[in-house]
Design a binder for these strands. Structure first.
Lengths: 342, 342
DNA sequence: TCGTTGTCATCAATCGATTGCAATATACCC
DNA sequence: GGGTATATTGCAATCGATTGATGACAACGA
């Protein structure tokens, strides 16, 4: 292991002062002779000199580093979001500090503090969807000394830039499509109990039904956590109804449902139609490809970075910006068109 | 946005010197009267004081931050590794800076430099599997001023701690199992051209064949990149052989193969048996569940952190440590037992 | 010769913490 | 009262960089 080389050492070797070396290496258009300029650069290169960002950011008061907190980096959607966001940050010379919290508000808070004390210039937060006690977190976010952008989900009622997909619209589009295909008895499988996102998707589902005068039947609304086994459990009851179609409000929920369908020997869309959300690997693999509401994480990342960028530049008014993105319905093969018998 | 509160401000408010405040907040068993101790703590809490790690690590010469470079955070295996590793680091009070390179040696190098200048105390490297020009990277790693641990893959011939699964053994175990089940014509689908890992798995495959006196038939060895479409392409040729079983040497390769099989109406294991590697979501979902060689990323993370921990503590000899982990064969339902007709 | 201008380079303060070394105050002993 | 413990606390240097203020020196004009 080599030693770290400092500015001072370079200066000593060249026989000039540290300030001169700093000036040259930062390419300041200052008054250092061409001759010395070359010399310094050469010595620095020869010694593998790399400036110490820690020291630099102490005086510069910026680190060109951003932070990201996601609930679970092992989820495909968040991993993809993290990947896109990092790429985007790097394009602008920022490093991205990716962290994964486990989803609890306490962990989120802990990570947030870690990031702040480590001097990130701003944070992207994917937090606050579940109904846990987030008072401390909310408090911390509102007193943050650096800009924050909430991504994909939000702590309700917090004045803060937000970038997210319109979950209500997603639920609406999915259901609306099923209705257009002639379905009348449409079940849904959502995480409304513990997730704001889930609630919104449910609201969209209900709006679509109301809009065409279909009844909202509580017996067709099923609850599931965002985990495959949970959805698998819940699906049995779904299949006991007379529904001809199901709106599965997340990718994992869809997967749990599919597993159950498969086990029961039901075929899609022959026996039942399915609209999913956020298709993951599954559609690459097996027939039928799932019709789904898609949210492109890359788009989310792009807008989130945009917001952050403005804040960092000191632009962007005092008020929080709120970007709402429309999800897209991708039609594939999991929905049967019913001949309208009405 | 609130302002950042500094030690000095706290000191001023309390009417004591910054040094005293520092002493108290770090719980030094020193000096300082109980009375003032309480006072300081209270004022610090009231002002939401959080120490500036940047300043602190400048003088302490450690940041309690580690770095991780993975080729692609969107891959399930690496995401899982990153998740486990972060959790493990946090248990010991370290934050983990997760970065994702895209896989090229230049990007790896760039990220490594970023991490080092940002003052991480050590780095976990998942780099160097592909045959690209890694001279600069190799050079950088060997001159690193901080400990590095190579995880899951390695730059060949570099004196550096390494933690990885035995890929040769994995290939061997998979093939050996197929042989034991009575298969004699066993194809394999590997990324031997561009991946060291792939080469090793191929070597294991061949060893198993040799061991029982089966011929090594180049017509049964197929090349595929680690991407689903690539494997999908390659699979057509595989299925044109008389092989009764296939060893698919990565999860994505298995998925591409499965897709092709499905499209051709072939059933597993009825028409052909499959042993996969690193099962991802697929086996949760559909029948038959895949028999596979499993590498637990959590185990990898645990050992990697162990190595790092030793280095950070200054223990661990001058020589590099090399930890080789055995993968595990998980038997499920994708292999048919052939009645031995010999 | 003095003043002015311009060029090249250094000084010294600063960022926010940590810490060894003094300094002050009080008490206690002879 | 002078000397010595003991208990508290402050000073100032330090980490490695950045940067506005300042200095040294040569050339040139008046």
């Amino acid at each position: 292991m080599a030693n770290k080389v400092t500015l001072k050492q370079i200066a000593q070797e060249v026989g000039l002062s540290p300030s001169s070396v700093s000036l040259v290496l930062n390419n300041r258009p200052c008054r250092i002779s061409e001759e010395n300029r070359k010399l310094i650069k050469e010595v620095a290169a020869r010694n593998h000199y790399v400036p110490n960002q820690i020291a630099r950011s102490l005086v510069m008061r910026e680190s060109r580093t951003l932070g990201l907190i996601v609930p679970n980096i092992e989820s495909r959607f968040f991993a993809s979001l993290a990947g896109s966001l990092e790429k985007r940050c790097r394009e602008d010379g920022y490093a991205l500090f990716i962290t994964s919290s486990g989803g609890s508000a306490e962990d989120d808070l802990e990570l947030l503090r870690q990031l702040v004390t480590r001097g990130v210039d701003g944070v992207f937060l994917v937090v606050g969807d579940e109904f846990s006690d987030d008072r401390a977190l909310r408090e911390e976010v509102s007193h943050l000394p650096i800009p924050a952008v909430m991504v994909d989900r939000a702590i309700e009622g917090l004045e803060c830039d937000k970038v997210m997909f319109d979950h209500e619209m997603g639920g609406y589009m999915a259901t609306r499509y099923l209705i257009e295909q002639g379905h009348r008895r449409i079940a849904c499988l959502v995480n409304a109990r513990r997730s704001n996102t889930g609630r919104k998707r449910l609201a969209g589902y209900e709006r679509a039904l109301r809009e065409v005068g279909l009844p909202i039947d509580a017996r067709l609304e099923f609850e599931s956590e965002y985990y495959i086994p949970s959805a698998y459990e819940a699906s049995e009851a779904v299949l006991a109804t007379d529904a001809t179609a199901v709106f599965a409000s997340s990718d994992n929920i869809a997967l749990g449902l599919l597993k159950r369908l498969h086990e029961m020997g039901k075929s899609i869309p022959g026996d039942i139609s399915v609209v999913s959300y956020d298709n993951s690997a599954a559609d690459v693999l097996f027939e039928p490809a799932l019709t789904a509401i898609e949210q492109d994480p890359g788009v989310l990342a792009e807008h989130a970075f945009g917001c952050m960028s403005k804040r960092l530049a000191g632009k962007g008014g005092r008020r929080a910006e709120e970007v709402v993105l429309e999800p897209v319905l991708i039609v594939k093969d999991s929905v049967l068109e019913l001949t309208k018998h009405n």
